[in-house]
Design a protein around this nucleic acid. Structure first.
Lengths: 211, 211
DNA sequence: ACGACGCTACCTCTTTCGGGGTAGCAGGGC
DNA sequence: GCCCTGCTACCCCGAAAGAGGTAGCGTCGT
């Protein structure tokens, strides 16, 4: 390898984890850790200062998390590769990261040898994703909650609100002046549109999505 | 240092994290990593085989988590030190660990040098706790509204959490390894204690009262 | 005028919930 | 020793929920 090694920036709030990755990477001739950061703000500064070829970015950080950091990196016209590297396989995080042009999403429970290989592939321009995320990605692409959520009719939104306050079909039917059977029809349609299978899940959805 | 070094067992499901800790510890003459494990079951085997002076035990692991592993270590009459080492500062985990005679509870975001120091203190017989946990400990000891208002047992809190995530009795029963019937008993008791009349109201209560 | 959509109502059917009860078995406190 | 609590498991039974279907009746847009 006569060429200059690829430069890397490690971003993780756990010093021990940074050390583990660093030690792993330093065994490789073609990879070099040029900087570390323990939070998103430092990461932005380091990125600007060192302009690394690739940033390995933990998502779960206090203050500025990985997704936010990625967003700001892109806004700052950072042109290197960014690999998300986290323990969480939350669908939202994965899809958000990919939408923000992350160059990959790796889970921390992978084997060290795999990480090195994935880093090289990412530096080569490939999109690298942990195999364990296939299911997550598949479900994300299927029409589910967030996609159809706002397609709820006015009536259905009323009903959902009442579900989320704990009412039964009979109660909310009385309150709305409709029969229990009709209430059930609305509930059924809500469940279909939200992609859930019980009024309880619908209620959780409603409570988590602001109203 | 003419004495034999203290022997350590690292337990963490993240290979990278193990590597980081190992490399850190191997710089010290008086500390020696004699084995690693990536899950609780392996940890139990390794503990029996190598009888390390101290086990550094991650809590967040698939299959058998750290708390459960600690419990079984104590049941197996393991006499060495056990330090919980995790990212989570969940009050429940901390108090459970201490009740199970853990010799310390450290957070992963600590500085490497601190870790070494804490390991030595633990090996010396001291109880070591991350400073960041003082607030958690304080609130755990104080009879707060939430603790007494509900009177929910540990199991009931688990079940309530699952209710609040939308699970049915059958599902949460499977997840907890208990029968659907038993799950129903827990749910019934929860409803009584909370003074509500449906799992949905219980879920709303749980989501509104922070968890 | 016609179709699409939303709201209403009813039907059947299976599964799940919620409220009772009894009971064995572990652990901790007296 | 004994009792009390918590966890487990089972029983019955009525009510509610969820998944199908059909259908009348509005409104809106083409």
């Amino acid at each position: 390898m006569s060429q200059a090694p690829h430069t890397l920036l490690l971003v993780d709030d756990h010093p021990m984890m940074r050390r583990g990755i660093r030690q792993l990477i330093e065994l490789e001739d073609d990879l070099q850790v040029v900087a570390e950061a323990s939070n998103g703000y430092d990461a932005l500064l380091m990125a600007e200062q060192f302009k690394p070829d690739l940033i390995l970015l933990d998502n779960n950080m206090p203050q500025l998390n990985g997704i936010e950091t990625l967003k700001r990196l892109r806004e700052a016209q950072y042109s290197g590769k960014v690999l998300m590297f986290t323990v969480s396989d939350a669908q939202e995080d994965v899809t958000d990261a990919l939408r923000l042009q992350a160059d990959g999403f790796l889970l921390k429970d992978m084997e060290p040898e795999q990480l090195i290989e994935q880093l090289r592939q990412a530096l080569d321009g490939q999109l690298v994703i942990s195999p364990a995320l296939t299911l997550t990605l598949a479900t994300a692409l299927r029409p589910t909650p967030e996609n159809n959520a706002c397609n709820l009719t006015h009536r259905e939104q009323q009903v959902l609100k009442m579900i989320a306050s704990g009412m039964s079909n009979k109660k909310l039917g009385n309150k709305l002046g409709i029969s229990e059977g009709t209430a059930k029809v609305h509930v059924k349609n809500i469940l279909n549109k939200l992609g859930v299978s019980s009024r309880l899940e619908a209620a959780v959805w409603a409570l988590e999505h602001d109203k």
